[in-house]
Simulated scan of single mutants.
Amino acid sequence: MLAVLLWAWAMWMVLLLPAPAAAQGRNGTSITQMRLEQSDDGVYFSAAVQFELPSLVEEVLDKGIAIYFVAEAELYQERWYWTDRKVAQVARHMRLAYQPLTRRWRLNVSAAPMTGAAGLGISLNQNFDTLGDALDAIKRIGRLRLGDVAEIGDDPQHQVTFRFRLDTSQLPRPFQIGVVGQADWNIAAERTAKLPLEKQK
């Protein structure tokens, strides 16, 4: 009887563990770098993502329709007696749009989803001459603040899960219906790693 209970408990624990994350995601998207850094005002996460924008998505952009990307980082505290505890979570929402009048690309960056005009009021704005320059800025996820050192702890290593995706849920409703099942819109990657907490130089 004890053996059966131990087996059932072990199976239950396996089900609770998160699935291993892959650095290589859908549509050739990959997470090439991840870094955790401690500075005087908190702990920051940075990452680098690599992906190619499919021609179908470029065509939508050329028509003046904005597309959205989301980058999310979660930091966990390991516990030998139970599942890992989520200590911190942060997200960055990015809206990319072509401005036909100026022939420039505008990137809005916010900590919250930017649905509707009201969401753009609290975002940082950058303008770029080329689509390539705008995408390079999206691929560099810099200094996402996870919290204070007191909240996170000063362990030498922390487990971090990072996700990056093209967010089709923020597209106009007709496009949301049209992109269902289309591989071109499936840009996403996820990676989990133990990262050293580096001191800012």
Rank of each mutant, 00 (worst) to 15 (best):
R143V: 06
R173I: 14
L144F: 03
V180L: 13
G181Q: 01
Q182F: 00
D148F: 07
D167T: 08
A189Y: 08
G178N: 12
V160Y: 01
L166I: 02
T168E: 07
D154N: 01
R163N: 10
A188F: 03
A188K: 14
V179L: 00
T192R: 15
T161F: 12
V179G: 02
L144M: 15
D154Q: 04
L171V: 13
W185H: 04
V160P: 01
G181Y: 00
R145D: 09
G153Y: 00
A189E: 05
L166K: 04
I177S: 14
F164D: 11
L144Y: 06
V179T: 06
G178T: 12
T192K: 15
E151P: 00
N186A: 07
Q182M: 07
I187S: 07
Q157N: 13
Q182W: 05
F175M: 14
V180F: 08
D155I: 01
L144S: 10
A189P: 10
F162A: 05
V149P: 00
Q170C: 12
V149N: 01
T161W: 13
L166A: 01
I177E: 14
G181A: 02
R145Y: 01
F164W: 08
D167F: 03
N186M: 12
G153A: 04
R191V: 03
L146P: 09
I187V: 14
S169P: 09
G147W: 00
D155H: 02
P156D: 00
A150K: 15
R173Q: 11
F162G: 01
A189G: 07
A189N: 06
F175Q: 15
R163L: 14
L146V: 12
R145H: 12
E151K: 15
F175Y: 13
R165N: 11
G178V: 05
R143C: 07
A189C: 12
T161K: 08
F164T: 14
P174T: 09
V180D: 06
Q182R: 15
Q176N: 12
V180P: 02
D184A: 09
S169N: 15
D184R: 03
R165K: 11
D184Y: 00
T161D: 08
A183I: 06
R163A: 14
Q176H: 10
A183W: 02
V180Q: 08
G147F: 04
R191E: 06
I141L: 03
I187L: 15
L144W: 03
A183M: 08
D184L: 03
P156I: 01
H158N: 04
R145L: 14
L146G: 04
R173A: 15
R145C: 09
D148M: 12
W185N: 03
A193P: 12
G142R: 11
R191Y: 08
P156G: 00
R143D: 07
G147C: 09
V179M: 02
R165T: 10
F175H: 10
D167Y: 02
E151R: 15
I187T: 07
L171G: 14
P174M: 04
P156A: 01
G147E: 07
I141H: 02
G142V: 08
I152C: 05
E151V: 13
I141E: 04
D155Q: 06
A183L: 05
D154C: 02
I177Y: 11
D167W: 05
Q176T: 13
V160N: 04
G181V: 03
P156R: 03
L144D: 05
A193K: 10
L171E: 15
